[in-house]
Design a protein around this nucleic acid. Structure first.
Lengths: 197, 197
DNA sequence: AGCCTATTTTAATGGCTATTAAAATACGCT
DNA sequence: AGCGTATTTTAATAGCCATTAAAATAGGCT
């Protein structure tokens, strides 16, 4: 039939809700600790209904990670495109990433169960993840070179900052007030230590 | 019989190894994603043999968390007992915590699956965890009052710093070189931003 | 009303895994 | 060698859960 846009739109919308419900569950109880029944309950459905929207449980995790990765990339690109010294660009990225993580498009899944993906999915996500780290390290290096960031172990500095961000989905529960505090405080804390004396 | 110390010592030693193996598995694949067979394989045993040392799988997670919590408390106490301004005490704590996390007594389990514990275990661990946060916030507050730390949202600042630490078990794999870098870099990055201008 | 499709449910199936009990093995000690 | 305990394995049980196919429902369109 002529599957009019209205139908597909409803489908896509519900698919989104499904991913959000899954992210919520995964963040709370982990991937394997979450049953499809858990996810379905969030939407008032039966577990089997999920297969109308998703091939299998792994796909659910994979697409959650895709969403998370895309948010990171959007923020990173914004930082890279910003004109200014390295420290400023890092701040633009970081702030935007936090806004996304804690904003209306959430919740996002904590990226802690990459081993649960299958070969190809894992490779793809790991790729994005490593790219993200490298791009951030590039911003830091730039900052060191342009004198806005003090000399430091760039790899470890990146690890320290990224870890703080990665952990957020574990405790942030969508409170708007808290979201503002995160966006206001995290960049200051995480980047303040890098400033040149 | 006269269960001589030698026997109990061997038992305790193997129990420790078991906890370390479990922590390794849990960090990689999550609590539910880890089968007792996985853990047993690390020790060259069968899954059923684990029950000689542990009541059940949950107990394994619980005792992993106890170890992690104790390491944090040891470090926190060291910081609190140190004489100096708030920022210095926070640095002592943080450095020691990192040394422990990345040192010979590891690996420690990432504390991300508290919901998998049963009622009492969960309450106990949550209690310790919250105490830990409050004690750290107290150090920060002290720093603000004695002028070593700039005015900031203490709760969120604590969240930012703790998140970075909490995430470490997810990527640190026991490399000694890396451990040194972590201990050298993390305190500078995570506390540098708090210094008064 | 009645058709056609979209959506959801019901009802299997099979595999994995925690847990237990009983049997087997290893090992120190006499 | 042989007893007695410590440790580990084998084998069985039972429950949960992902996945599938077929049946049921709902809603738009004519």
């Amino acid at each position: 039939m002529n599957r009019p846009a209205s139908a597909t739109q409803a489908y896509d919308k519900k698919r989104e809700q499904l991913l959000r419900a899954a992210a919520t569950c995964f963040n709370e109880k982990g991937y394997s600790g979450t049953s499809l029944k858990d996810v379905a309950r969030h939407l008032g459905l039966t577990d089997a209904a999920i297969y109308y929207y998703m091939n299998n449980k792994r796909q659910l995790l994979f697409e959650c990670y895709l969403r998370a990765v895309q948010a990171g990339e959007e923020a990173m690109t914004l930082g890279e495109d910003h004109s200014g010294v390295g420290l400023e660009r890092a701040r633009v990225y970081l702030t935007r990433h936090l806004e996304l993580l804690c904003g209306e498009s959430g919740p996002f899944a904590i990226m802690s169960e990459i081993p649960a993906l299958d070969q190809e999915q894992r490779a793809l996500i790991l790729n994005h993840s490593r790219q993200h780290s490298r791009r951030f390290e590039a911003l830091l290096l730039q900052g060191v070179k342009d004198g806005s960031i003090k000399d430091c172990d760039i790899r470890m500095t990146g690890n320290a900052i990224m870890g703080s961000i990665n952990w957020i989905p574990k405790w942030f529960r969508g409170d708007a007030q808290q979201a503002r505090q995160i966006v206001a405080t995290f960049p200051a804390v995480l980047l303040g230590g890098l400033q040149c004396a």
